[in-house]
Each structure stands twice: as structure tokens, then as C-alpha cells.
Amino acid sequence: MTRMSSTLRTLLTGAALAALAGPAFADLVISNWDGYMAPDAVANFSAESGEPAEMVVHATNEEIMGKLIASGGAGYDVVFVSSPFAEVLNNLGLLEPIDPAQVPNLSNLYPEAQALPHDPGNAFSVPYAWGTTGLCYRSDVVSPEPTSWKDLLAPSEANAGKVTLLGTDRWLLAAGFLARGYSVNDSDQAHIDEVQADLTAAKATMLAFDDTTFYAKLVSGEANLVHAWDGWCNYGIAENATIKFAVPTEGSDLWVDTMVVMKASENKAGAFKFINYILDANNHKWAAENILYKVPNQPAMEGLAPEMLEQFPNMAMTPADLTKFEQLRDVGEAMRAYTKAVTEIKAAQ
């Protein structure tokens, strides 16, 4: 009896090891920006669902796009990308349609987040965070309060040399397009040329292009007024309560970061489980509370503490307000003209 049980135990241990080794080979691979979800999210998901998973990071949309296009999506299961890139991946046939039956928590999304222009009905992408771009400024030194994109592109004498602009293609050009009342997805070459001239001229009155430390420049006093994503302006507000965020009167863009499932995934059921896990109200709330970005999850947002909305007023923007702005879309071939314009703006002396 003892002998048998020990044999049995050996067999069982072997089977357990095989079971561990098996799925470990096909771990779910999730690629996200560094620090864009809870550090323990993947581990907790694995513990809860029994699906072994690992997280890898990408620094930019373009970086992960290069990898996905080169490999046809192989090696990745769930990827976080901004919506214009999700559109491209879908056009390339690399995405698995989202199966709502396997992602019941989709019902937590605001109705507006289920009808986004790039993907109405969440056919191939699930929104993770959304927001807008605008003016982030030190209300103790900037007076009058900035209200227009022109306050950035042609700053007052007091702010000259103390403004920064986002250097990423789409947002840099968006500032120029919006200042002239054009669409953020404008592909008319004449309009691109005008905006290029405006932005080239703006270099004379700006401090720097900055995509990562603009809020720190406000805190240190190096800059008075910066072009910022709403969520990142909050990082400045957290350190200095005189910092404020405003959407210019000309309007702004709507950006949406999404989760997509690769067609090449060998564990699509696991991938859907992961998306469903993130969409859980409590899990999704983590992003809003810790990254200070708005999430399109109704119960998650409703669970935020009122003090938080008071400290970071842009967290309280409603989905109705946000979706009034024009969403950044894939512009196809016009992207070449965008890139050329941005290269020329940055190279201009």
C-alpha cells in the first residue's frame, strides 16, 4: 500500500511537472507600455484564471507595430496599442475579432466607448484608457488663463521661451491643425504645408519638444505652459496644485488606447479571459487611480473617490464631453506626408 502510493505519488508529480511545463511553453504573452497597468496584474490574473501569462513591454506604438508586422503577430496574444494602430493591424488582417460571449465585462464600458468611430461595437479592439490633449500650465504665473492653441504656438511675451510642444508626429501636427480649425486627421497637402509653416515658426518661441518630462518642467519652473496629455498633466498637478489643465476653445483630439487579440495567438480563449479580467471594475479602476488616466469603464470611474476628482478635475470629464472631440484615426498614405512635415519642422534652423 505504501509502496503503491509512493509510485502513485511519483506518477502524479511527473504529471504535475508535465502539466506545468506544457502550458508554460505556451504562456499568454501580453505586451503593454511599461507602468501602464498594475505591476501585479498579470500575476493576479494567472493565479485567478490558472492561465500562465507573462508581460513584455514596448516603449512606443511604432516599436510594437514593427515587431507585429515583421512576425505577422506571432508570439503575442494581447497587445495594447493606440486606436489608429489597432485600425492598421485590423486592416492587415492580424487581429482576431473580439468575441463578446467570452468577454462579459464589455458591458462595463460606457455606451460611448462601445461606439467609438474607429471600431463601433468593439469588433476588433477594446478601449483601455482614453483622454484628450490640451494646455497644462502654472496658473500662478500664466495670466490671463490660456484658452487657445495659439497660446502655445505664438505665446505672449511673458511665456515666450517657456512653452513645450509634444514632439510625436500626430500630436504635434494636431496642435497646428486645431489652431487653424482643421481636422486632426486632415490629409490635404495644402493644409499640412500651412501647419508645417506655423509649427516651424513656433520653434522660435518654444523651449523644447518634450513628450516625457513636460510636467516636471512646469514643476521646476523651467516652463510656464506645456502641450500635454490630460493624464500626464495630472502628474504635475500631483506635485504642484497651481498646475491646471485646459482644453482650448478650438477643441482637441480624442485618443484611445486599446487592447487587441492577435489572430496568430494560440490561446485566444486565454487572451479574452485576460481582457475580461482587466475590464473588471476593480482591476480597471487601478489604472485610473494610479496612472491618473481616465478609463472607459463606468463602474470603475463611478468608484473613484470624490477627493480625487476634486484634485484632478480632468478626471471628471464625462464620456459625452470626451467623445465630442474628433478621434485620431489612421490616415493611411497621408502618414508619409505627416512624417515628412515633422522631420522638416524639427530640422529647420
Partner: peptide, 22 residues
């Protein structure tokens, strides 16, 4: 340079990592 000056290195970097024109 605060990104206000493009040198060849920045241009190469941009082609591989942002413009995706390898």
C-alpha cells in the same frame, strides 16, 4: 537640444522607431 535640432542619428532613430521606414 530639446529635439529642436535634428542630427543624422536622430533621423535614423526616427526612421526605425517612429516613421517605421526601415
Amino acid at each position: 537640444g530639446g529635439g529642436k535640432f535634428q542630427m543624422v542619428g536622430n533621423l535614423v532613430y526616427a526612421q526605425f522607431l517612429t516613421a517605421n521606414d526601415w
